[in-house]
Amino acid sequence: MSEIPEHLLKRAQAAREKAESSQEPTDNASPTKETNSQTTVAVADESPIQEIDEKAEEILERISKGLGQKLISSHIAPNRGLWIRVSSDDWRETAQFLRDQLDCRFFDWLSVIDWMPSPYGRELETEQDVDSQAERIEDQPIEWGYTGGKTRFQLITRVYSISLGIGVMVKADLDDHNPRALSLIPVYPGANWHEREAREMFGVTFDEHPDLRNIYLPGDFEGHPLRKDYPLLSRRIKPWPGIVDVEAMPGEEK
């Protein structure tokens, strides 16, 4: 397997640094509009359609007015989406609020993000996945995405308002050891299967769910495959087909 060309690595590194500098995660507990627009100002200048961004700001204002203290943090990526974060205790009330007050009647999807860095991450140099190293997990601090976070598991759902033409992504931190939240079925019946999937894949329990059994996996399956500490066995015994064996295009110098 060939080495990555030096210049490409440099370019990728530069791109990454640029992106990191332009998008600081907002960790402050009570977000203000100013911080949000500041973090995204570099992009907003270039974007051709400004009014959708204003719409998101306006919706966020309505949400923060309606939810009050329950809204922990929020994030607007201009023309791309609106993220809010609430506590898992307020999970169902938030959904109720969004459906009733913001006309978000379309239930899009629900899932979980495991923010723990994978202990089985593949290094660029190695052929196989490196083995589980407990200390490596602790070495790497958890970095959360938009709206920040506090715990390893974050519940995320997207609901859409057809009349307003905007989707809202709602996140909620879940307890590390006993991840559980209220089921959304009374608000959105369609959450049923999504919650079953989230339970089997991440081990998140949804209280008041009528039928929380596995949806894909056999009933006696052990473990929760989409958790980051669940090993992907084939990756550990076989060399991983290449990221770096990039061949030069015809007529192009390598």
Partner: peptide
């Protein structure tokens, strides 16, 4: 870039 590294963030 030839080797694609996507900057941190979330998108739907």
């Amino acid at each position: 870039p030839r080797i694609i590294k996507v900057p941190p963030g979330e998108a739907y």
